[in-house]
Write a protein that binds this DNA or RNA. Structure first.
Length: 586
DNA sequence: ATAGGGTTAG
């Protein structure tokens, strides 16, 4: 049997030729050779206008406005500009190359818009930051598909209207749409933003029900939600159950551990990740450097800095902000400054990091100077910036400046002071000897006091040898936690330094009566005996060593010539022969 | 179409 013949070719040959040439045309488009594609396949395009879609997609990737305009004119000349399919592609192109206005005009001219057209415009408006227009479009739609709901949920979450995103999920469910992996990814991100563990667990049920547990995106989002909401165990479980992990799943786990304070585990996990063969990227570096910063492990920090440079990630503001903090906490302020100055693009967080670094090193003037420069450059300071700035002022005894900034924060920036801000101000007033004002502030502030803020005041009493007030304050702290040894110890030291031995022995009696015990520092002593001089020690968790500094000291920074350097949140303690540089024995 | 990050008081 022979095939019918078209001219000199069989039908099969014609089809084969057609498939071949379409393939070649698509190939040219995907490589960006638009002119060649148009010239060689003019007749094919004219007979099948849907082929224009490939040209449009190529133009979208090129992000070239002139290319897009030429192509658009060509489409108009070909007479298929009323084709919905082509029009939707054009809408998408204009929105992706940042020509929202053109897309809006085109959308307005379309005679028969379909759901797809509206979906594209919802996404386009969201991407250009206009959530309201997206919402209006969404609300005006009589028919929606799953992508419509997904676009709106994603937009709401993107602009941190997380609760509303969750509400929309239940609304879509009510009208009969089951969430897919895209919806779930978005709402889980919303739950993470809300630290909403309960809502997140409910979404987890949807994930299981839809069979998306093993989906990389849904799985990572789920794990991220758990870890951001403080449930590291559940998050880790989700990741471990995933049969295939990619870089993002790894980093989700690493970042989760970093955020939950497991800095040591972060470094282990990071090394493991590299052994398995994943390449770290800038987001990995940020998490890892922050952990080095928390541990004050300079050597590891420097090594990772080198890797950052090698990976070409050294220009990222996020990476640089974490480097500034790491070097500052490792006593290398010069390197912090260097990193700060080398940064080409800057933002609030970068400036805040540098202000914090100066404050950490007791350089109040420099911190203030930087803040003023920041204001001149019209960067909007945030609440964290002010914590660092106030901290810098209090550590340098700059009372007037500090109070001025506190005022500025409330009045000019409209920020509501948090407990951290009040603690800085109490420290500021207390250090400068305004003990009564500091106490009054704690009693009158609109947020609930915690033991830390009272302890801050107690330290100030110690500096100014005010035993009477210290006694009253110690009672208040013990009201928060009667078993806390720190106020007794502080009070005892205050009595001792004021040479009131009577008060001191009464206090020790009270401690015995209430069965309060001060933790001995056995572990540190053992470490010192068993570790050869000059060997760096990485981390010791929950180590209490210095009772005089009244802060739980957590990390050993290094051991040099049998001298141990320990870091707490605000300063370095040098221990030699069992004696701390701040004067206390352990 | 969708996922992961940086600065913060004692």
């Amino acid at each position: 049997m022979s095939c019918p013949r078209f001219f000199s070719k069989t039908a099969t040959e014609v089809v084969a030729h057609f498939v071949d040439s379409t393939e070649e045309f698509i190939n040219l488009c995907s490589k960006g050779h638009l002119k060649e594609a148009v010239n060689r396949f003019k007749s094919e395009i004219w007979s099948d206008p849907t082929l224009f879609s490939h040209l449009i997609q190529s133009c979208t990737l090129k992000k070239s406005l002139s290319c897009s305009k030429q192509l658009h004119s060509l489409i108009v000349t070909s007479g298929c500009s009323s084709n919905n399919f082509i029009c939707n592609h054009l809408l998408n192109m204009y929105s992706k190359i940042g020509q929202l206005q053109t897309a809006v005009t085109l959308f307005g001219l379309m005679p028969r818009r379909n759901i797809m057209s509206c979906n594209i415009m919802i996404n386009a408006n969201e991407q250009s930051g206009d959530l309201e227009s997206a919402r209006k479009l969404f609300e005006g739609m009589t028919k929606r598909n799953i992508a419509t709901w997904n676009a709106m949920v994603a937009g709401l979450v993107q602009f941190e209207f997380n609760e509303e995103g969750l509400r929309l999920l239940s609304e879509m469910h009510q009208v009969g749409f089951l969430p897919d992996e895209f919806t779930l990814g978005s709402v889980l991100r919303g739950c993470a933003g809300l630290r909403g563990l309960d809502a997140g667990r409910q979404i987890h049920c949807y994930v299981v029900k839809g069979g998306f547990e093993l989906d990389l995106v849904a799985g990572s989002s789920l794990a991220h939600m758990y870890m951001k909401s403080g449930s590291l165990v559940e998050g880790e479980k989700v990741i471990r159950l995933m049969p295939v992990c990619n870089v993002i799943a790894w980093i989700t786990l690493i970042a989760g551990k970093a955020q939950n304070g497991l800095a040591e585990d972060v470094l282990d996990q990071y090394n493991l990740m590299r052994m398995v063969g994943f390449r770290p990227d800038k987001i990995t570096f940020v998490s890892v450097i922050s952990s080095c910063s928390e541990l004050a492990t300079l050597g590891q920090g420097q090594q990772i800095h080198a890797e950052v440079v090698k990976a070409g990630a050294s220009l990222d503001v996020g990476v640089i902000s974490s480097l500034i903090s790491m070097y500052s906490r490792c006593e290398c302020l010069d390197d912090s400054v260097k990193a700060f100055l080398e940064c080409e693009y800057s933002d609030v967080v970068l400036w805040s990091s540098m202000i914090a670094a100066y404050g950490f090193h007791g350089k109040g003037e420099e911190a203030i100077n930087l803040f003023e420069q920041m204001e001149q450059k019209e960067f909007e300071a945030n609440d964290v910036t002010f914590v660092s700035l106030l901290y810098a002022c209090s550590h340098c005894g700059l009372k007037e400046k500090g109070m001025e900034f506190f005022d500025l924060m409330v009045k000019k920036y409209g920020l509501k002071p948090r407990l951290e801000h009040y603690t800085c101000v109490v420290d500021l007033l207390g250090r400068c000897g305004y003990l009564d004002e500091a106490a009054a502030l704690i009693r009158n502030m609109p947020v609930k006091a915690n033991a830390i803020i009272w302890k801050t005041l107690l330290s100030a009493c110690k500096i100014h040898k005010s035993t009477d007030m210290a006694g009253r304050i110690a009672e208040e702290i013990l009201g928060h936690n009667p078993q806390d040894a720190a106020p007794y110890v502080l009070l005892s030291n205050i009595h001792a330094s004021a040479k009131r031995w009577q008060g001191d022995s009464e206090l020790r009696e009270a401690m015995r009566e209430r069965n309060v015990k001060k933790e001995p520092a056995k572990s540190l002593r053992l470490l010192l005996l068993n570790t050869p001089a000059g060997v760096p020690i990485r981390v010791m968790k929950n180590l209490r060593v210095c009772s005089d500094c009244h802060v739980a000291i957590k990390y050993i920074s290094e051991i040099k010539n049998r001298e141990i350097i320990v870091r707490d949140a605000s300063r370095f303690h040098h221990f030699r022969n069992g004696k701390c540089s701040c004067g206390d024995y352990w």
